[in-house]
Design a protein around this nucleic acid. Sequence first.
DNA 1: GCGACAG
DNA 2: ATCTTGTCGC
Length: 230
Amino acid sequence: MGVPERWWPDGPAELAAVQAELGARSPAPWRPPADRPIRIGGCFCCFPRGVEGFGERGDPLWVAAVTYEDRRRIASAVRGDRARAPYVAGLLAMREGPALAAAVSELSVLPDVLLVNATGRDHPRAAGLAYHLGAALDLPTVGVTHRPLLATGDWPADEAGAAGTLTLAGAPVGAWVRTRAGRRPLVAHAGWRTDPGTAVEVVRQATGTARTPVPLREARRLARRARALR
DNA sequence: GCGACAG
DNA sequence: ATCTTGTCGC
């Protein structure tokens, strides 16, 4: 993945500069291959229970990454690490970026596209963590969150698969997606080399019986299990 | 000035 | 992110 310091600087101003540079890029669009099963990955980062709020530099954390092909998990990686900074909206990369990048890099089989618990182009500098992580790893990414950061748009109909575009400054940056009827929709974010349409398609394909896409759920489960093992 | 604000 | 409490549905 190249030199870590180049992608994950320590200071807010330095990170903002990296985001501005990355956000101005227009990487070649990636599209899911139609001739073979698509490998979808997911990564997740969790923190100690009982510690609420924004946290701080040095907080212990656990990260997990997985690769799925068809309905099966074909690779996984779990590790413990430390946060680089407290949580600050718009600067999430400074807190979790390096740890997530390290976990994904340890996968024996990389996915075609990676699901990240973060925003993508829906960001002040068009470079949320999902987009940023993809650029750092040279891997197409799709962001998945409970709500948008800055983008706005109406909720879709209450039926599985329904989607509603989210725009920021007039540009489509993601979409609300109803992965399960009767449940709150989640947000599929355009990330590194993916547009809103692709993001929705990947989320739909990765979703099983639960609201959260399978690879993301599994990465979350593994990270929390590692935390439980202390 | 005040509220909002990914995880 | 994590925690608490309450409510609804199977």
